[in-house]
Amino acid sequence: MIMKKTLKFAFQKSLPVLFGYLFLGSAFGIMLQQEGYNFVWALFCSIFIYAGSGQFLLVSLLSGGATLYVTALMTLLINSRHIFYGLSFLDKFKKMRQMYPYMIFSLTDETYSVLCSCSAIGGIDENKALFFIALFDHLYWIAGSVLGSLMGQYLPFDFAGIEFSMTALFVVIFVEQWKSFKSHIPAVVGLVSATVFLLLLGANNFILPSLIVTVTVLMLCKNKVMEKVGGET
């Protein structure tokens, strides 16, 4: 009974990611296919790498025949924002015991956002709910990339613009946190810092400097934020 309710809760929470991942995943599958790698390659990439922008980068690394050093450096750079995500789940994931490694592995932008916006309800197993949200998202991504490389050009409809559903997901979570979070300083700092660095440094280089400045500013106004947020920290 608890299991059924937990699965239902996790599925509902993961649903906003479904469409975005199916289509972004299939975009990856199509690109990989065009470079001469069939669905088996797409399947393994999406199981073991599992990163949106990282896998798009991978396609160009494969087609250019990049060295392993370049691959490592570029992958670390493009995913560098992830080093900040775990900070919000240090204790929570540890308590999940055997699921702990998988939760770390599967912490993509979208799963991170959904987990952040997730407050548990009664009658469910919270740890399992978090795990199933992560797992469902991963499965959508895998399914999308395999479907993309299999069907590729035969899609009956032009889906251009469907990727906006990911933007919309982040905007929805932004609105929810704006309402529930007692201090607006973190959201404003993140927004301003990202905008300024995007304009200064351009699309490919802005996110890491932006996040470093955000963290620094948040540390500097710790007292002011904690006054509003409260808690023992």
Partner: peptide
């Protein structure tokens, strides 16, 4: 976990989500 890290864990989500919105528009 050090107090300052606990603090960051607590306040980073809204800041990171805001950053991700901009990231989508890059």
């Amino acid at each position: 976990i050090p107090k300052s890290v606990q603090y960051l864990g607590k306040v980073l989500p809204p800041a990171v989500i805001a950053t991700l919105v901009i990231y989508c528009l890059k």
